[in-house]
Design a protein around this nucleic acid. Sequence first.
DNA 1: ACTTCGTTTGGGATCGATCCCAACGGGCTT
DNA 2: AAGCCCGTTGGGATCGATCCCAAACGAAGT
Lengths: 350, 350
Amino acid sequence: MVTPRQERGQPAAGGGRRPTIKTVAARAGVGRTTVSRVLNGSPLVSDEARTAVLTAIAELNFVPSSVARSLVTSRTDSIALVIPESESRLGSEPYFSAVIRGVSEALAGTQLQLLLILVRDQRELDRLQEFLTAGRVDGVLLVSVHRDDPLPGLLEELGLPTVLAGRRSAEEPLPHVHSDNVGGSAEAVRHLLARGRSEIATITGPLDMDVGSSRLRGWREALVGAGAPADESLVAPGDFTEEGGRLAMRALLERHPRLDAVFAASDVMAAGALAELRRAGRQVPDDVALVGFDDSIVARHTEPSLTSVRQQVEEIGRTITELLFQEIACGGSARFPVVLPTSLIVRASS
Amino acid sequence: MVTPRQERGQPAAGGGRRPTIKTVAARAGVGRTTVSRVLNGSPLVSDEARTAVLTAIAELNFVPSSVARSLVTSRTDSIALVIPESESRLGSEPYFSAVIRGVSEALAGTQLQLLLILVRDQRELDRLQEFLTAGRVDGVLLVSVHRDDPLPGLLEELGLPTVLAGRRSAEEPLPHVHSDNVGGSAEAVRHLLARGRSEIATITGPLDMDVGSSRLRGWREALVGAGAPADESLVAPGDFTEEGGRLAMRALLERHPRLDAVFAASDVMAAGALAELRRAGRQVPDDVALVGFDDSIVARHTEPSLTSVRQQVEEIGRTITELLFQEIACGGSARFPVVLPTSLIVRASS
DNA sequence: ACTTCGTTTGGGATCGATCCCAACGGGCTT
DNA sequence: AAGCCCGTTGGGATCGATCCCAAACGAAGT
C-alpha cells in the first residue's frame, strides 16, 4: 500500500502522477514543442498559444523535470562547493560558514543549486573524483587548497569550470579569489611597530598553503620595510588550531623570553597563544601585544579582546561564485585573479 | 594519455564524448542489459560476462550517467539540507556547521549527495517549494523549524521523506531529533541553585521555536522542583543573538537589580549578557553567576570562561540523516522522536 | 525423444524533456 | 494565379540509463 494511487483511464482529477510536458500540451491544445518553447522563453510562440500554455501549467501545477532536461542538455544546473576537511577546521572556524553564505547569496537569483561536498579522507576523495568525472555538476568551487592538492589538476584535465578560493601558489593558473594576505599581515605588523614594539614574533598557518606562506611573507616584508631584521627564529609554525597556537607560543617564549609582540595568522591560534601567554605570566597587551587574523567571533570575546585583520570572507564566496558563472557561460574568458582588501580592526590586545 | 582510446568502427575516432553503457556493451561483447546488471550488482550474470564487463568499464574509464538513471528510476540519489536563515544565525553560530558535519559524515558511506539550501526570504522559499515539488531530491532534512513554519506541512503533503532537527511543537508528527532541552536547562538551573543562588533570571530564545520554549520550561521546572517560585518577571526574551542577549540583560538588571544568576538559552546571548553585566559593574561570577547553552567556541574564550550546557550537535546531524535513510527506504516505519542527552560543562562563570 | 525447468541473455519500450526539420497558412510580391 | 517568405507549429528522434519479456541454451525428468 505504499503506492496507493489507482490508475484511471485518463489522468483523472486526482492526478496520480506528476504532470508532464505532454499533459500540459494536451490540456492547452498545443504540441509538446510549443510548451517547451514557452518554458524556455522562446520568442517564436504566438501570444495566444503562450497564454494557453501558461494557464495549463498553472492549473496542473506543472513543474518541468530537471532530470529529463539535464539528460538532453547535458547541463545539471548545479555546482559543487568542495571543502577539504582534513584539518577539521570547519568546526573551529566560521570561515567556511561565511563562504557558504556568500556562495548561497550569489546563487539566489539563479536557477543553480549548491552541492556541498566535504572531503575527509582518501576514500571520499576517490568518490568525489568519480562524481566529478560523471559530470554531475556544471562547475566546481574549491576552498582551502594546498600546494600539492591533486584536485585542481584533475579539474583542469576534465575541463570542468573551476574557481578557487585561495590558490596553490603565486602562479595559480586557475581563476581564483583571495584576500590580500601579504598586505593584511604587513599592516598588522606595521601597527605593532607603530606601537613601539621591537621584537615581533609570528605564528604561521600551514606553510604548504598560500594563506600560510603569504601571511608569513607579510610579516617579513613589514619588518624589512621598517629596516628591522627579520629574525627567522621569531617564526613558529602553526596549523590554524588553538592547540597549535598554544604550542607555537610556548616554543617562541622559550627561544625569545623578551619578545614583546606576536602576530598570529588566525584568531583561533591567537586565542591559543593568549592562553599560553597568560599561563606564562605575561600581561597582554602590556608585556606582549597580540594580533590575530580573520576577525572572527572569538576575537571579540577573548579577554582582552583581540586586534585582528578582517577579511571579507562572505565576499570571497560571492566572488568565486560569480567568476564561476562566467567560466561556465563563456569558458574561461578573463582569468585575472581577484584580490580582496583587508582591514585592521584594533582592539584591546595591542 | 588523458583520453587514450579511439573507437574503431562506429563512433568515429576522437573519443570526444564520455562512453555510455552501449560503448561498454560493445567492447565487452555483451548486451546493454548485461552491463546494467553488472552495474547494479544483479546475481543473474555469469562470472565470465561479469569480468568482461568489468574490464571494459575499467579500460573505458566508464562512469554511468546518474541523470539517465534518475530519469527512469525516479530517484535522484541526493537529499537536501534546508537551513532557514531569516535570523542569519549561520554566521554567529557554529550550530549549523556542526549539523552539516554530522550529516556529511553519515552520508560518507552512501551514494547520496548533499544539497545545501539556505532560505533567506519569501522568494527563496517559493523557489525551494518549486524545487521540492519538482522531485529533485529523495528526502529533506529540515533544521531550526518555527512553530508556524509552512515547510514541514508542505513536505508532508508532497509525501516527501522528511526528518526535522528540532520540532514545531511537542506534538510534532514528523520524525525528528532534538536535544533534551528541558532536561539540560533544568540541570543548569539546579547547578545554580546548588551554588547558593536564589534570584535566577533567564534569557530565552525565540519563543515561537521549541528550543526557545523548552529551555524556558526547563528553567521553570527546576525552580518549581526546588520549591522556589518561578517569578515570570525574571524571564527576558532573546533571539539567540549577542545584541539580543545584551538588551535582555539590561532589561533584567533594571527590573531586578539584585539578581544573582542568569541562565541564557545560548552561549552567544550569554556573551552579550556578560558584556552588559560588565558594563553595569557586576562581577561574574561573584555578583552574578552565568550559564549558557551549546558549549560553543565562545564559551571557552569569554572572560571568565562560560559554564554551558553541551549538546551533541554533530550527533544530531548524523541521526537525522540516518532516520532519513529509513524514511526513504521503508517509508515512515518507526517514527519515534529521538532525544539526545545534554551535559553540563562547568567553567569559571558560575 | 520430448517436455519442463532454470539460468543467462539481449532487444524493445520507457522515463520526460529538448532539438531538428518538415509543414502549414496567409500576406506579398511578380 | 503562381511563387515565396516568414512567423508558428508539431511530430519524430535523441539523450543514457532501467525494466519487461521473450528467447536461447543446457540439464534434468518422464
